[in-house]
């Protein structure tokens, strides 16, 4: 298991290198730069040139790349002149909001999705199965950010049960935090709920047709024991794969959902920086998010090893 972990970690290195190169190149594509923004509308050409020299963006691309990588390895993502602080600080301050939103949505999606899938599989071809699968299909077809707006209109504006946006830190007020996070997390989860429900159903159906399930039932084991202990455990690997992919989708979905619900997360920071053309922050935000994603994938691979011993022996 330890060897598997080390190998998996090593294989992440080329991916991270490509990721960092991409983030750098994307920003290099950009026409225009932040100097006009800092200088203001009536800055002279000399002032602009001065700002550019100060920021180091007048130097050749290779030199900039080298210095960018040099700083990167020291954990320095640059400085945002528009925010007046280092990019690492700005991103790390926002990261907990994004991560808690993603985690909460993941919990919603996984629990509701698997339960729906198990229910559908156990009552195969019944009206329950049909309804669950139609619900899953509709769930994965609706655009989640739009669903969020509909929920705000319904629960925030019409019924007035929940706030229409904004954020309360969990450290200040747990109930307030739950009230501000409930709608965004549910919104973010809706698509993946459908995906997980469908995967769980088909994976469970595969397993439920196996001989050992019949044996377990023949031995006189109770239905729930067979389903949760024998069937679900073996149906877990494909489900985990989907949950792993889901985490990435949720992480990027959070960017949009934060915008809909005015949550101060990394996504909102990135979108705001796009409008301000504050490239160090965009780069930093992208890079951190991609790194979290790569890390999540490693964790998912580890989980395969836990549920399916064949995976760790193979490699």
């Amino acid at each position: 298991m330890a060897l598997f972990l080390v190998r998996r970690l090593l294989s992440a290195i080329p991916v991270l290198l490509v990721v960092s190169l991409m983030t750098f190149l994307i920003m290099w594509l950009v026409p225009g730069d932040v100097s006009a923004e800092i200088g203001g509308t009536d800055a002279t050409a000399e002032q602009i040139a001065q700002i550019r020299a100060q920021l180091g963006i007048d130097r050749p691309i290779l030199e900039r790349a080298l210095s960018w990588y040099g700083n990167l390895f020291q954990g320095d993502l640059g400085y945002s002149y528009l925010l007046g602080r280092s990019v690492v600080d700005a991103v790390l301050e926002r990261l907990p909001v994004t991560l808690s939103l993603t985690a909460l949505a993941l919990v919603f999606a996984t629990i509701i999705g698997t339960l729906l899938g198990i229910l559908a599989a156990v009552r195969h071809n019944s009206w329950l199965d049909q309804t669950a699968m139609v619900a899953a299909l509709v769930g994965l077809s609706i655009p989640d950010f739009w669903f969020g707006i509909v929920l705000i209109i319904l629960f925030g504006v019409s019924l007035g049960w929940l706030p229409t946006g904004g954020f309360v830190p969990i450290t200040e007020d747990v109930w307030g935090w739950a009230r501000t996070m409930a709608l965004p997390a549910f919104t973010l989860a809706i698509t993946q709920m459908g995906v997980i429900a469908r995967m769980t159903r088909s994976s469970m159906l595969d397993v439920l047709n196996q001989d050992y399930i019949r044996t377990a039932r023949a031995k006189g084991m109770r239905g729930p024991t067979v389903i949760f202990k024998h069937a679900l455990r073996n149906a877990m690997v494909p489900i985990i794969t989907v949950v792993g992919v889901t985490t990435g989708v949720l992480l990027s979905g959070a960017v949009v959902i934060e915008q809909v619900f005015s949550l101060p997360g990394v996504g909102r920071l990135i979108i705001g920086s796009i409008q301000r053309r504050d490239f160090p922050v965009i780069q930093g935000g992208l890079l951190v998010t991609a790194c979290v994603f790569v890390f999540v994938n490693i964790v998912v691979d580890m989980l395969y090893g836990v549920f399916d011993p064949r995976v760790r022996d193979d490699r």
């Binding site: 991916v15 490509v18 594509l29 989708v249 992480l251 990027s252 960017v255 992208l286 998010t289 991609a290």
Partner: peptide, 19 residues
């Protein structure tokens, strides 16, 4: 793989904003 390491539409958002 490197391109896929950007979760979901985040890469598209970054590219679209750059272009």
């Amino acid at each position: 793989d490197g391109l896929m390491a950007f979760p979901g539409v985040l890469l598209a958002i970054a590219l679209a904003s750059a272009l």
